[in-house]
């Protein structure tokens, strides 16, 4: 395990693997994306309550899931780099944060657009929307902290502490907001929570979730590779790659 982590953490090894990985991830992403879009926009029948507006779910839900998932990535890679001082996880955390913030923004904006026909207003102080908004603030704080340091290594480790505190806080934030919103406006009508989601609706959703996840991996790999090149620009293998 220990040896594996260090091998995986070696920039050259990671660079080589990520080139292979990138190809496959991109293919899976494109296939799932096209399949999910076709299934979601064309094949899936209109919802009997929400009509065609429910089709927003196919971008909204994957984005919302990814926003949380990437925050978990920030925290875990932060923990790894605090414990083992591995460069790769520093880089992964740094390049993931803006992607996560963009997904959070996406989840919020599509949620607001969806809210207009469903709730009649763009914004309701619903527990999920509110905690998603706070999550966006957490991302922005993380990015701001990272960019305040000149030394990338210190920035990564400071960010790691912030992300770990954030990840402990997220359940508390979510619970507090839920507590508060039930007190304020009564449980919101969540028509989307109907457990009986039809298979023709569910399969495109799963495809889109896979597509978003692989999209994130693909982008993170590209960004990580260029950061590795910057870090290791004096080593011989980088010169060899650039020489070709």
């Amino acid at each position: 395990m220990y040896k594996w982590i260090h091998q995986f953490g070696s920039p050259k090894y990671f660079y080589d693997i990520s080139l292979h990985l990138s190809k496959w991830v991109t293919i899976v992403c494109i296939v799932c994306f096209i399949g999910g879009l076709y299934g979601g926009l064309v094949l899936a029948p209109a919802d009997y309550q929400q009509g065609d507006s429910f089709r927003i779910i196919y971008v909204h839900v994957p984005a919302a899931w990814m926003s949380l998932f990437i925050y978990v990535i920030l925290a875990t890679s932060g923990a790894i780099s605090l414990i083992w001082h591995i460069k790769i996880t520093d880089i992964i955390a740094r390049v993931s944060a803006p992607i996560g913030a963009s997904f959070t923004f996406l989840a919020l904006s599509t949620g607001a657009i969806w809210g207009k026909p469903m709730w009649g207003t763009y914004w309701v102080w619903d527990a999920r929307l509110t905690s998603e908004l706070i999550l966006l603030f957490l991302y922005l704080g993380y990015i701001a902290l990272q960019s305040a340091f000149d030394d990338k290594r210190i920035a990564a480790r400071a960010g790691a502490i912030l992300a770990l505190i954030g990840i402990i806080n997220i359940p508390i934030i979510h619970y507090s907001v839920e507590w508060w919103s039930t007190l304020h406006q009564g449980p919101t009508i969540t028509k989307l929570d109907k457990p009986s989601i039809h298979l023709t609706m569910l399969i495109p959703l799963i495809l889109m979730v896979i597509a978003f996840k692989t999209f994130y991996i693909a982008i993170a790999l590209i960004k990580t590779r260029s950061e590795i090149l910057k870090y290791e620009c004096n080593s011989s293998w980088v010169k060899k790659i650039l020489g070709n």
């Binding site: 009509g51 065609d52 507006s53 089709r55 927003i56 657009i113 969806w114 207009k116 026909p117």
Partner: peptide, 8 residues
């Protein structure tokens, strides 16, 4: 989109 074009 069943009248929801603008939103979707």
């Amino acid at each position: 989109m069943g009248g929801y074009a603008a939103y979707v």
